Amino acid sequence: MKGHFYFTHPIEASLDPRMEAMEEKLHGKGFGVYWYIREKMSYFSNNRCRLKDLKPFATRYYTKQMIEWVVLESGLFGCDEAGNIVPLKLQCEQESETDPADAWQPVLCPTENRETAPKTTGKNSRKTTKNTRNTSVSGKKTAENNENRTKISEKTAEIDEKSSENSKKTAKNGPKTAQNSTKKAPKPTEIAAQPSENEATENNIRTQSNTNTSTIYKEKKKEKEKDVVVVATPTTTPTPSASPTAIRPWQQYVAELNSDSEWGQIVCMKSGYGALLKKHWKTAKELFRQHVIAMGKEQSLLTQDEAKRYFMSFAATCPTTAGELRQQLLRLEQAATATADPYRYEQRLDGRRTCNGRPIPDDAPPRPDDHSTWNSRLKRWEPEYG
């Protein structure tokens, strides 16, 4: 590095809408990433470099992806003809007419060992350069204003010419419109003659209608004599809108419900008696089929997804049907293990029945499984995690 550099940081930089959008995207890091990039660009000549030159400056907090997004997507950087990154002006910088490369040119900080000219000469040289730039900018503005004035004057002249031509055309068309109006106006004699003509036409229509009715009556009479059979055209009745039908029978959807699938595992987990449900899955599907027939829901199971949703409600989410299904499966489990020891899920302590250290009444039925507790108020076994 040649020395320590610094560049100006506008106080109102955060008011730029692009800066606000970047902060909403990256939160607090957006503002820091922008000035971090500007700081690293000052190491290069004319504050310009390529995107690949910034990759070595990526850190743990200012990652390469974050730097690329700010340069390419934030709208705060542009690209010149050589493909270098150029910082665009912020909203607070629009008032100044200086070039961005000049405004952000790095300046060497003064040091003690550096031999420099007197301070007054340096200040005067800076002021003269600023004055020359301001004069060039003002000259450009005056030239642009003169060009705009000439364009406006030319447009006004064209508009005046068009308005004069339109006025001449309207003056020429004046007599023609008067003649047309006189031609279109009806004469009083014609207006008086119109009622008589209308009356004549009405009389002719009446006579024709009378003759037509007489001939029609005669023709109908001849048809009756000849026993002509008239076939009536059938009237088209609107067909009711057809209700949606299932692609396959709903029983096939129920038969394809699988407990080994991810969906089946979720059903067992939500039911609260997953091991018991998975063990007697076929029986649960048969009970579900009977439930569908009993509730008259055959027409509602049109797809496999609808069958899955209904079975989820039947076996897990609906407390009424899920509780009844659990009780039926427990009865099947008890019947299957009737030959075994009915008290195998209990413990004996000094000859008394206990469950997890709690005493069980002597007249209580055997504990159905390893996840049931005795309800002394209702005097029955209930699921431990219900």
Results as ranks from 00 to 15, higher is better:
282 K>E: 14
52 K>I: 11
193 A>K: 13
66 M>H: 12
197 E>L: 07
103 A>P: 00
290 Q>T: 04
249 P>A: 14
316 A>V: 00
216 I>V: 13
66 M>V: 10
96 S>M: 12
305 D>K: 03
117 A>V: 07
141 K>M: 07
190 E>F: 04
145 N>A: 14
249 P>G: 15
285 K>L: 10
358 R>S: 09
82 A>Q: 14
12 E>K: 10
234 P>K: 13
127 K>E: 08
185 A>T: 07
297 K>R: 14
64 K>Y: 04
223 E>C: 09
370 D>P: 04
381 W>M: 04
315 A>G: 02
11 I>A: 12
324 E>C: 07
370 D>V: 11
353 R>K: 14
299 Q>G: 05
206 R>Y: 02
221 K>E: 10
64 K>E: 12
205 I>D: 12
273 Y>R: 04
230 V>H: 09
333 E>F: 06
290 Q>S: 08
155 K>N: 06
7 F>E: 03
114 R>V: 02
198 N>W: 08
258 N>S: 15
361 P>E: 07
34 Y>S: 02
361 P>F: 04
93 E>V: 04
128 T>C: 10
135 T>V: 10
372 S>C: 08
331 R>T: 11
364 A>W: 05
52 K>A: 10
118 P>T: 02
247 I>N: 13
47 N>M: 11
154 E>L: 14
374 W>T: 01
92 C>M: 04
180 N>V: 09
36 Y>G: 14
383 P>G: 05
186 P>H: 01
287 L>A: 09
340 A>N: 08
233 T>R: 11
341 D>S: 05
242 A>I: 05
310 Y>Q: 09
228 V>W: 01
244 P>T: 01
225 E>N: 05
178 A>F: 15
236 T>A: 13
44 F>Y: 06
124 N>I: 07
241 S>E: 12
53 D>C: 02
289 R>P: 03
378 L>E: 15
366 P>A: 13
247 I>R: 14
1 M>D: 07
265 Q>C: 12
4 H>E: 05
230 V>E: 06
11 I>Y: 09
55 K>S: 06
190 E>R: 02
43 Y>R: 05
86 V>R: 14
182 T>N: 10
163 S>M: 08
222 K>L: 14
316 A>Y: 00
110 P>V: 04
222 K>T: 10
207 T>R: 14
336 A>G: 05
261 S>I: 03
309 R>G: 02
15 L>E: 07
4 H>D: 05
305 D>C: 01
90 L>E: 15
374 W>P: 01
4 H>V: 06
227 D>Q: 15
144 E>A: 12
28 G>F: 10
127 K>G: 06
83 G>S: 15
303 T>K: 03
119 K>R: 09
122 G>P: 01
201 T>R: 10
54 L>W: 00
36 Y>F: 15
296 G>L: 00
311 F>H: 00
222 K>V: 11
360 I>L: 08
329 L>S: 00
82 A>G: 09
204 N>Q: 15
317 T>H: 13
83 G>K: 15
377 R>S: 11
92 C>P: 03
167 S>E: 08
317 T>A: 10
67 I>L: 12
295 M>K: 13
56 P>V: 04
118 P>Q: 04
380 R>Q: 13
301 L>E: 00
323 G>L: 00
359 P>S: 08
314 F>T: 00
209 S>H: 02
